[in-house]
């Protein structure tokens, strides 16, 4: 993981939408009155949701003023956590897990697929501007490794071909079916074995 790049193209203005402003007030109320700065993380996430999945600099300034804290403190938080995007990402935002279990099961093959199909570099938009990909740390679905996340859905038990097919679909603006791609239900064992009882040497 390297330091996140802040986008060079920045919007001039950011403001919470009406609904989000109400939501923001609610979030702040979860914290003690004099410690409302603690709400910086959920609010940054709120900003990211409102602003096409990325956080512009004006929004950080806006938030710093909103929470009455120094700009640099918001900036620190936003650069620290990998899940805040500081540059525009595609409508279809592909996050490929490359932590050990996925890596052993062939996550780098999926990265190859990303490079072939979407863009040659991380955090770069595809030719039709719809899709971008990124390597991430463990997404907590190790039992279905290798896997990736596209927007809010998990795509599991992949290999290079399957990943390519999924990318084909999203590049054509179709939504592929989420879940296991080896026909598993959630993380059930393969080959229908549900217990260890029928195994002799278990």
């Amino acid at each position: 993981m390297s330091l996140k790049k802040v986008s060079k193209e920045q919007p001039d203005k950011f403001e919470f939408s009406k609904e989000n402003l109400i939501l923001a007030e609610k979030l702040i109320q979860k914290y003690p009155k004099e410690k409302k700065q603690s709400a910086v993380m959920p609010l940054l996430y709120l900003i990211q949701k409102q602003n096409d999945n990325w956080i512009p600099l004006v929004a950080m300034k806006y938030l710093a003023k909103y929470l009455n804290m120094p700009y640099i403190k918001v900036y620190e938080v936003a650069t620290f956590y990998s899940m805040y995007n500081l540059a525009p990402v595609g409508n279809y935002f592909v996050q490929v897990c490359t932590t050990t279990p996925c890596m052993i099961r062939g996550a780098y093959k999926i990265i190859e697929a990303c490079k072939e199909k979407i863009s040659s570099k991380e955090n770069e938009l595809s030719k039709n501007k719809k899709c971008s990909w990124i390597e991430v740390e463990c997404l907590g679905a190790c039992i279905n490794a290798p896997m990736m996340q596209i927007n809010n859905d998990y795509y599991e038990d992949l290999d290079k071909d399957k990943a390519l097919k999924i990318f084909e679909k999203i590049l054509n603006d179709e939504k592929p079916e989420p879940g296991s791609y080896r026909g598993r239900k959630n993380s059930e064992p393969e080959n229908n074995r549900t217990t260890l009882m029928d195994l002799n040497n278990a």
């Binding site: 993981m1 390297s2 330091l3 996140k4 600099l57 120094p70 700009y71 640099i72 403190k73 900036y75 620190e76 650069t79 620290f80």
Partner: peptide, 25 residues
Amino acid sequence: ATEVAGVPELGAIGRGEDMQITTYL
């Protein structure tokens, strides 16, 4: 900068090996 000088302008961005000390932008 934060405590004595009272101008919270310095901060550490990024994390781990990539942590960097900088002023805001």
